[in-house]
């Protein structure tokens, strides 16, 4: 089974302009462990919102690849947004679900994916035609290449080792997290507009 930090390290290696939104909890700690900075938005709340934040961002910045990294619990809360994304069809948006079949952050209770729910099939059913099962780091590299080439919308699902990882916390001040990404994209005028 794949290691979640190795997946994140691989998909964010040589990421170029790629922006990354990570859902609350383990996914946010993962991207922070790989390296924190203005191209990352690690979420502290808004469970169920990660994919739609990615959509709004992708529509606002159509020339910049956007990757959403979401837990399975996060994605299950937001399956409707898969239909919304399919309908909007932004070519610069990719969603990668790290499926440990559990709500890790809250004590490892089983999610529906533990009992047979397949989020990749749900994404296909929502109308996202480019889907990929991630079974190796080569698959991760292929996903990164497609995301950077903006061949989306993409949906990828990786079954991962559920063992918890050391906590690596990003800044807790959300205003900073938002402002630094806006400044990265828009320059100093981000704060005076």
């Amino acid at each position: 089974m794949l290691d979640r930090r190795e997946i994140c390290a691989e998909v964010l290696r040589d990421r170029g302009p790629m922006l990354c939104v990570a859902s609350l909890g383990a996914a946010a700690w993962d991207i922070t462990a790989i390296g924190d900075g203005p191209q990352n938005l690690p979420l502290w709340g808004g469970m169920g919102g990660a994919a739609m934040i990615g959509l709004g961002l992708a529509l606002a910045q159509p020339e910049v690849p956007v990757l959403v990294i979401a837990g399975d619990g996060e994605m299950l809360m937001a399956v409707g947004s898969l239909a919304t994304i399919a309908h909007q069809a932004p070519r610069n948006l990719a969603v990668l679900v790290l499926d440990n079949e559990h709500y890790g952050e809250t004590g490892m209770q089983a999610t529906a994916t533990r009992h047979g729910t397949d989020l990749l099939v749900m994404a296909q059913g929502a109308g996202i035609s480019r889907t990929r099962r991630i079974a190796s780091l080569d698959d991760v590299r292929a996903l990164r290449a497609e995301a950077l080439a903006m061949q989306g919308p993409l949906f990828a699902l990786a079954k991962i080792d559920p063992a918890p990882k050391p906590l690596v916390l990003p800044p807790r001040e959300g205003a900073l997290l938002q402002a630094r990404m806006r400044e990265h994209l828009l320059g100093p005028s981000a704060h005076t507009a």
Partner: peptide, 11 residues
Amino acid sequence: ALMQGAWLGGQ
């Protein structure tokens, strides 16, 4: 959540 993403991207 869409409004959050749009603002992050400057729209």
